[in-house]
Every structure is written in structure tokens, then in C-alpha cells.
Amino acid sequence: MAEHEAIIERMRDSILEADDDEAVAAAEAALAAGMDPLAALEAGFSEPIRELGEAFNRLEIFLPQLVLSARTMQAGLKVLERALTTAAREAARKGVVVIGTVEGDIHDIGKTIVVAMLRSAGYEVHDLGTDVPLPQFINVAEQTHADIIGMSALLSTTMLRQRDLLELLQLKGIRDKYFVIVGGAPATQAWADSIGANAFARDAHEAVLCLNARARNVTSRA
């Protein structure tokens, strides 16, 4: 037991110090010691990354540390995933998110913060970057079996693309497959309602809270 606790401590430290190599080594050690990979993932990686997300929300740490730690978690997760059963993998995963800044808009930072926070909250996130053509959101969502699409727009002018993607989903008859969340400086709850989005988030913290609430609903309905 003491060995297991020491390994969890190594995993936690690797996240807090954003040490990719140590995260991989600690995850390997957890598997070699016969630990339950799902329990190791939760205590060793998910918990400290959640703590960092909360610290970021309180501005006790800043974006670079959150991004680096989220990357470290991805590195360690790859090791643990090898040992997870399909059912355990599903249990560990809250949702698959395809996210990007809509076409015509190259603003990145807000979306990057959302990506880091969602990863730190346990979501599988496919970040399409900026200036993303609408069909690409749909193509990647279909390929990755995503259940959530997130769109960011910083400009009043490009915000209209959020509406267009919802229309496109409707046109293709796949609107109900996806939970669509929108954000960005000009977006509001009224805007989200008017275009038929499932949700609006003012910031990354709200996005996590909103998707977590959705995940709980999905789980309770299952």
C-alpha cells in the first residue's frame, strides 16, 4: 500500500511540475505495481489537474502552467489507457469535444484556455485551432465520435458562423447527435438561445461547469 501511495504521489508531482517524462515513468510504475489504472488515473492525474484548474480560476496560477500540466496529463494518460478496459475507458471519459475558433477569426487565447480547462477536467478534446471552416467541425466530430462541439468567436462579424454551423448540422440531419456550446466576447446567452445552441459559456470555468452538468445528466439517464 505504501508503494501505491508513493506512486500516486509521484504522479501528482509530475502534473504539478509539468514533467512529461516523470508522468510516463510514474504511470508505468503504477501498472507494474498492479494498481487499478482507473483509480490511479483519478488520484494521480485527474485530481491534481482539477486542483490546478481551480487554482487557475482563482488566478493563483496562469495559462502557461495549466497548458503544460494538461500536456503532461495527456502523456501519462496514454500509458494508463493501454491497461484500461473499454468500459473503464468510457467511465474515465466525460465526453469527446471538438472545438475551434470559427472561420474568419484567428483569435486563439480564449479557446486555448477552454481546451486546457476541459482537458484538465477529464474531457477528450480535439482542438481544431483557429479560422476553422464549418465542414471541418462536422468531419472531425464524426471521425472522433464526439458528442460535443464547441465554437469560439471573438468578433461580432464572425459570430454568425456559429449560427451557420447549427444550420448545417440541421441540414445534414445530425443536429441531435451533438451538444453544441458557444462562447467568445460578443456571444451571450440570448445569442445562444436565438441560434438554438445547447449552451453558452462566458469563460472556461463556466464551460467546464456546464459540460460537467451535462455529463451528470447523461450518466443519470443511462
Partner: peptide, 12 residues
């Protein structure tokens, strides 16, 4: 410049 973003805190 964004406080809390890539620049870090207010000094950054």
C-alpha cells in the same frame, strides 16, 4: 495583453 494568459500575472 492578457493578465492570466501567456504573459502570466500583471507584471508579465
Amino acid at each position: 495583453p492578457l493578465i492570466g494568459g501567456y504573459a502570466g500575472g500583471p507584471a508579465g
